[in-house]
């Protein structure tokens, strides 16, 4: 391990790799969150086929390694190239970036839907009754009462998920993407000092992790402000 290699690698990694890492992270988190709400609603819908399909989706993505999911989509879908070309999806799944986004999105959707489901189920019955009594429609009740309370309940677990997703983006390097970990691999082979290259990238991840955790703690604190006594 060589300190000068680490110090040279850090700015390079940030300049050329950080952007892609953050794009992977935030794009998949955003799309995944929308899917997660839909899946949670499907599971709670009580409609037999729909609820089971959502459960199967969640179960599959939570009990298989993320690496398998990456390879299943990136290498695996090539097996169905003619079919995908016929429906025009091949353009999409040919790109490693979109394969990574798909894998990360499905993965976080599966985990997050469980948090949201738990959150929705924890909403006190009286709150919903009160909203109904005020004459709100079901959609309004969901938008104004259930969802905000559910999100607040799910937030601590979701903070953890954000950090895990940051770390999950590193797997994109296994399907040829040059995000920070992929870039570290390139630096490793150029400098013949893999340990320094990976320590450098590890330090960057560590700092981002700590910043994310801090930021999310702050949001949690803000979102529960109404539960604290007013100061002074």
């Amino acid at each position: 391990m060589d300190v000068t290699v680490i110090l040279d690698a850090i700015p390079l990694l940030i300049e050329q790799g950080l952007r892609l890492t953050l794009e992977l992270l935030f794009l998949s988190l955003a799309v995944g969150l929308v899917f997660a709400v839909l899946i949670a609603l499907m599971r709670l819908s009580g409609i037999p086929g729909v609820a089971h399909a959502a459960y199967a989706f969640v179960y599959f993505f939570r009990s298989t390694p993320l690496l398998v999911q990456f390879f299943l989509i990136y290498y695996g879908l090539g097996q169905f190239r003619p079919e995908l070309q016929a429906v025009g999806l091949w353009q999409f799944f040919r790109e490693p970036f979109w394969c990574a986004i798909t894998a990360l999105t499905f993965n976080t959707a599966a985990y997050t839907s469980e948090m949201i489901r738990g959150g929705i189920q924890s909403v006190p019955h009286g709150q919903i009754e009160a909203a109904r009594a005020c004459g709100m429609s079901r959609v309004t009740v969901f938008r104004r009462i259930v969802l905000p309370l559910a999100i607040r309940q799910a937030l601590p677990a979701y903070s953890n998920e954000v950090v895990l997703m940051l770390h999950a983006t590193a797997l994109a390097s296994t399907i040829t993407l040059m995000e920070m970990t992929g870039l570290a691999g390139r630096i490793a082979s150029r400098t013949f000092d893999p340990v320094s290259a990976y320590v450098a990238v590890g330090l960057i991840y560590l700092v981002i992790t700590l910043l994310l955790t801090r930021g999310l703690k702050w949001i949690e604190w803000k979102s529960t402000a109404y539960l604290r006594p007013r100061d002074g």
Binding site: L166, H167, A168, T169, A170, L171, S173, T174, T181, A184, G185, A188, P194, V195, Y198, V199, V201, G202, Y205, L206, T209, L210
Partner: peptide, 13 residues
């Protein structure tokens, strides 16, 4: 705080 993949690389190398 670091991705498992990075940890694996550091250990292996």
């Amino acid at each position: 705080g670091i991705p498992t993949l990075v940890l694996v690389f550091i250990i292996f190398f």
